[in-house]
């Protein structure tokens, strides 16, 4: 047997956290699919399964006062940012303890305390918003960063180009992360984009760019780490293409394979499950045993069960809530700029 490298305690602890984060997202969404089938969750619901190394790898590099903004495929990032499974599940159930009081739903997770600026449902629409967050950081003279996730299909959208140009022009601390899972609904990237190395689009804006394997959480972490440094220290944006794959259909109504992608292709990608890859790396390094993995899995499953129970018990919104939060009924008369508003 090959001699194992002695595990380094600090990195082993970090790796456990990464594994835990990814496993939580996976188990959470497996149960989400079940709850959806039971009719407890309605509407559009887009699972993140297969892409967990992107959320975990990216968000593990942020400070608590940084900002995150993303698409409708947002459960994984919400959990990876530290939202409680209870708050996310209650939101999916449309209940009053949800992270958006049940008014957002699957596509619109928000948490102001965590700087989680939402899941957004209009493809590309939140990319200029991220640029605006970067503008506000610079305006206030802060050293936070904003990470903005979007799919590879959004790169063809005008909003992306307008936002990227301004971020580069004004030197804003924004990291644009393309989660290239190869498909926008049923349209393969080759059928939608004139170039396939889409991180190269950043060239048009003289923006730093990179491409990385999105199934490898360490690779994502490393690439994001550099981008965060560039944003924090030099207030410069980055376009990072992360190559990943979604293991499920586009949303709950879409078959996993058959129309726009073959079963063979899917199976090929399933071999590179980001959680399995991390787990075997850790096992090989002697950082975790099979028993410990089983224990972690049991713990995560219990947390998810608790979230489901919590969501089930969480009250429905009273009908008056329909009228609440349409407008704020205050006006500001303050003039001072807080160090970190929002």
């Amino acid at each position: 047997m090959m001699a194992r490298k002695k595990p380094d305690a600090a990195s082993a602890a970090l790796n456990r956290e990464l594994l835990h984060s990814m496993l939580l997202q996976r188990r959470f969404e497996e149960r989400t699919a079940e709850a959806y089938a039971l009719g407890k969750i309605g509407g559009f619901c887009h699972l993140y399964i297969g892409q967990e190394a992107v959320s975990t790898g990216s968000l593990s590099q942020l400070r608590p006062d940084d900002y995150v903004i993303t698409t409708y495929r947002d459960h994984g990032q919400a959990l990876a940012r530290g939202m409680t499974p209870r708050a996310v599940m209650a939101e999916l159930f449309g209940r009053s303890d949800g992270c958006a009081r049940g008014k957002g739903g699957s596509m619109h997770m928000f948490d102001k305390q965590l700087g989680f600026l939402g899941g957004h449902g209009i493809v590309g629409g939140h990319i200029p918003i991220a640029t605006g967050v970067g503008f506000a950081i610079k305006y206030r003279g802060g050293d936070q960063v904003c990470v903005c996730f979007f799919g590879e299909a959004a790169i063809n959208n005008g909003a992306f180009h307008e936002a990227a140009n301004m971020a580069a022009l004004w030197k804003l601390p924004v990291i644009y992360v393309i989660e290239n899972n190869r498909y926008g609904m049923g349209t393969a990237i080759e059928r939608a984009s004139a170039i396939n190395d889409i991180y190269e689009r950043a060239q048009s804006y003289d923006m730093a760019r990179d491409v990385v394997d999105g199934q490898d959480v360490f690779a994502v972490r490393e690439a994001i780490g550099k981008a965060v440094q560039r944003a924090r220290a030099d207030s410069m944006p980055t376009l990072l293409e992360v190559r990943t794959y979604r293991f499920m259909g586009h949303s709950m109504s879409d078959a996993v394979s058959g129309t726009y992608r073959t079963k063979d292709e899917l199976e090929e990608y399933l071999k590179r499950d980001p959680i399995a890859l991390l787990r075997s790396r850790m096992e090989e390094a002697g950082e975790i045993s099979a028993d410990e993995i089983a224990a972690m899995d049991a713990e995560v499953k219990a947390v998810v069960q608790d979230a489901l129970d919590f969501a089930d018990a969480s009250p429905e919104l009273p009908l008056e809530a329909l009228w609440e939060n349409v407008l704020v009924d205050t006006t500001s008369d303050a003039g001072a700029m807080p160090a970190r508003a929002g």
């Binding site: 200029p128 991220a130 605006g132 967050v133 307008e162 140009n165 929002g342």
Partner: peptide
């Protein structure tokens, strides 16, 4: 910094405003 000329990008700079408003400006 407080009176800002933009490129001709109505969608883009309206969104920049939304983002800045979200975090306190």
């Amino acid at each position: 910094m407080r009176v800002v000329d933009t490129p001709i990008t109505e969608l883009g700079f309206a969104g920049v405003g939304v983002g800045a408003a979200m975090v306190g400006l």
